Amino acid sequence: MFQFIGRLSATAVGAAALTATMFGAAPASAEEIVARLSYHWAPAHQSAIFCEEFAKRVNERGEGKIRIETFPSGQLFGIREIMGALSSGAVELGGVVGVVSFPPVDKNYNVEAMPGMFKDFAQLRRFFQEDETGQEIWNGVLKRTRTQFIGYNPTGPYMTFSAVRPLTSPEAFVGLKARYLAGIERPRWSALGADAVSMPTREVYTALQNGMIDTFNTVPAAIKAYSWWEHVKYGQLPFLFHADAFTLANQAWYDDLPDDVKQILLEVGAEIGAESTKSIMEFSTQVLNEFEERGGQVDTLTDEQLAAFTKVDDEKVIPELGDFVDANVIEAARAFVAN
């Protein structure tokens, strides 16, 4: 725990505590528990919609017992800040994107973002729930960050977009300016010949507008929610990986809750997880259809084209992933999906 907080820096944790004080929960009756749910997604993003639905259902079923107040669009904490805020107790509940928040705690969670490793959210989650290696990663992250899993709220399937040209061959990436959010994306951009720059979500629109970046990996929902489709023109399928996200709670806060309130949170969390997972895949298809109606182009790679990218991944990318995923974890994931 202390090692993790140290990596976030004392300044970041102090700022989180100060922000929590500034945005303190409204007064409640002696019996009612008031909790804050912080998430970074814009209101139109499917994950934001389901955060609001989660709070709504908990408030209805727990009326007089618990009330959740939501703080969207990073009002309290951004995508890279929320994990530290939850760990320190600066906020009670948070929307957490696994591939962003978990690797600083255990680099091996990066296995989620390996191109083509897991075919869907169900297979990805089963790896962390059923496989011994996957369980060790998942349980270790929650224990070290002192957080409690409440439910799934996936960000969506990741794919590659470009503002410059179709992405139908590895050569198409040479010279492009690529934004990355998760560190594990960087080796692949380099292998494809693109210049990679780390950039938070809030800066992407302006960077596209001024030409600072012209390609990136993201979920279809994001190009609509953040209006990025005003600048990107091309998309590449199949999906690279499935980016899971979660509603997590500060463990100490959760442990102090009455059992009936815990039950409400977990029941609603399970419902939202099932609904949001189904919805995000349908919504992704809908967004891509809208993207094409707006003049965008989505190219589904042929077997031959896909083989060319797989060759780059096998020969250039995976050998460079030692700093991101241990070899035994990659082997365990491959064995799991093969069976």
Rank of each mutant, 00 (worst) to 15 (best):
M1I: 11
M1K: 09
Q3I: 11
F4R: 02
G6E: 10
A10Y: 10
A12G: 02
T21G: 08
T21C: 07
F23N: 06
P27S: 12
E31D: 15
E31N: 14
I33P: 00
I33C: 03
V34E: 04
A35V: 00
A42H: 03
A44T: 04
Q46H: 14
S47T: 11
E53N: 09
F54G: 00
A55P: 02
K56T: 01
N59D: 08
E60D: 13
Q75L: 14
F77Q: 05
G78E: 05
E81Q: 15
M83R: 03
G84F: 00
L93W: 01
G94Y: 00
G95P: 01
G98T: 06
D106L: 11
A113L: 04
M114D: 06
P115F: 10
G116R: 03
A122Y: 09
Q123S: 11
F127P: 02
D131C: 07
E132A: 13
G134N: 04
W138E: 12
I150T: 06
P154D: 05
P154H: 09
T155L: 12
T160D: 14
L167E: 10
T168I: 09
T168N: 15
E171L: 12
V174W: 01
L176F: 03
A182M: 12
S190C: 09
A191E: 02
A194W: 01
A196S: 13
V197F: 11
T201L: 13
V204E: 05
Y205K: 14
Y205G: 02
A207S: 14
Q209H: 13
N210S: 12
G211C: 05
F216Y: 14
Q236G: 00
H242M: 01
A245M: 03
A252H: 12
D255F: 13
P258E: 13
K262R: 12
L265Q: 06
L266S: 09
T277G: 02
T277N: 03
M281P: 00
N289M: 11
V298P: 00
T302R: 12
D303A: 15
A307R: 10
F309N: 01
E315T: 13
V317T: 05
P319C: 12
D323T: 09
D326Y: 00
A327R: 12
N328L: 01
V329P: 06
I330Y: 11
N339R: 15
